[in-house]
Amino acid sequence: MSLGDRSIIPEILRKYQTELLNDWLSEQLKAGIGNNYFKETELREECRDFLDLCNKAVQSGNLTNIRASEWNDVREMLASFSRTSSQKGVTSTETASFVFSLKPPLFNRLHQEIPQDSATLTQEICLGTTLLDKLGLWTIESYQKAREAVILRQQEELIELSTPVVKLWEGILALPVIGTLDSGRTQVMMESLLQQIVETGSDVAIIDITGVPTVDTLTAQNLLKTVTAARLMGADCIISGIRPQIAQTIVYLGVDLADIVTKATLADAFALAVKRAGFTINRSQAQI
C-alpha cells in the first residue's frame, strides 16, 4: 500500500472544501495574485473548479503521478488557466502562485487533523508539497507553451506584414524586402509573390532590397530562388536597391547574377518595368 493510499489529504479536500476555498482565496488576494487581471468572482470560480477536480482525482489514491489519467481534467484546467493568464498579461510567477498558494490552507488543516503525530504530519506535508509542486510546475510549462504559441503567431504575422506585394502598375508588381532574408521568410515571400502574379497576371516583378542591411551567400541564394520561381510563373524579375557595398559583397561571394537585371534604385527598376510592359510615361506640360 502506497503513502497516497493511506494519506488523509483526500479526506481533508472532501471534508473542508469550502473552508479551503475561502482560506485559499484569502491567501491569493492578500498576496495580490491576479488582482490586476482577474475579478474576485473570476478567481473564486477558478479556485472552486480546481478544488473540485483535485477532490475527484485524489479519491483514486494517486497523489504522486499527475500524468495519470485520473488527473487529466486537472491538467486541462490548469492549462486553460495558464493560457488565459498569458493572454491577460499575468506573469509566470503569479500564474504558478495560483497553485502554490494552496499550501498554507492545506497544511493548516493537516496540523489541525494531526496535532500529536509529528511523523505522520511530516509525511503528509511532504506528500502535499510534492503534489502541489508538480501541479505548479505543470502550470508553468503550460504557461510557457502558451507564450511560445503567441510569440510564434506574432512572428508569422510580422513576416507576412513585412513582405507585402504591391501592384505598382498594370502588369507590374513590387516586393519591398526589409530586414534579414532567412529561409522561412523567403518561403512566405515567394508564396505571396507567386500568388499575386497569378491573381494579377503580371509580367514583371520588382524585388527591392534597399531595406536589406547585408547580403550574404544565404540571402543571395534565397533571392535567386524567388527569381527562379517567378520566372516559372511567366514573370520577369528585376532586383533593385543594389548599393555599392552590396554589389561588392555579391562579387566577393562569387554569386552569379549575370542573367538577372539589377538596378540601383526602385525608381530605375520601375522605369524599366514600365518600358518592358509597353507603356510610355510622358510629362504633361504644366498649365499656368
Rank of each mutant, 00 (worst) to 15 (best):
residue 29 L to A: 04
residue 45 E to W: 12
residue 260 I to A: 01
residue 179 G to N: 10
residue 151 I to F: 11
residue 69 S to M: 13
residue 52 D to Y: 15
residue 237 C to W: 06
residue 161 L to S: 00
residue 284 S to H: 11
residue 56 K to W: 11
residue 143 Y to P: 14
residue 150 V to W: 03
residue 189 M to N: 06
residue 217 T to N: 04
residue 234 G to T: 01
residue 19 E to P: 10
residue 21 L to F: 07
residue 207 I to N: 12
residue 249 T to Y: 03
residue 186 T to L: 01
residue 184 G to T: 01
residue 46 E to G: 11
residue 45 E to C: 09
residue 21 L to H: 10
residue 247 A to E: 06
residue 137 L to S: 11
residue 244 P to D: 15
residue 114 I to N: 02
residue 235 A to E: 07
residue 90 V to D: 00
residue 240 S to A: 08
residue 79 A to Y: 06
residue 172 I to P: 13
residue 111 H to P: 02
residue 170 E to T: 13
residue 20 L to S: 11
residue 40 E to D: 07
residue 82 S to V: 01
residue 168 L to P: 08
residue 216 D to G: 09
residue 200 T to E: 02
residue 117 D to H: 11
residue 238 I to S: 03
residue 173 L to W: 06
residue 185 R to F: 09
residue 160 E to Q: 06
residue 200 T to V: 02
residue 46 E to C: 14
residue 262 T to D: 04
residue 124 E to Y: 02
residue 59 Q to W: 14
residue 165 V to H: 14
residue 176 P to D: 09
residue 55 N to K: 14
residue 188 V to Q: 04
residue 120 T to F: 07
residue 49 D to I: 10
residue 209 I to D: 03
residue 180 T to Q: 14
residue 167 K to H: 14
residue 205 A to C: 12
residue 195 Q to T: 13
residue 140 I to R: 12
residue 179 G to V: 12
residue 42 E to M: 07
residue 44 R to P: 05
residue 104 P to C: 09
residue 183 S to A: 10
residue 99 V to W: 00
residue 259 D to H: 13
residue 139 T to C: 04
residue 157 E to M: 04
residue 278 G to A: 06
residue 68 A to M: 05
residue 131 L to R: 15
residue 253 L to V: 02
residue 115 P to R: 00
residue 88 K to R: 06
residue 97 S to D: 01
residue 52 D to W: 15
residue 105 P to R: 14
residue 247 A to W: 03
residue 52 D to N: 15
residue 236 D to I: 04
residue 251 V to G: 00
residue 175 L to A: 05
residue 288 I to R: 08
residue 45 E to F: 11
residue 280 T to H: 05
residue 212 V to T: 13
residue 144 Q to V: 10
residue 43 L to G: 00
residue 102 L to F: 01
residue 257 L to V: 08
residue 169 W to Q: 12
residue 58 V to L: 09
residue 169 W to D: 13
residue 138 W to C: 13
residue 65 N to S: 14
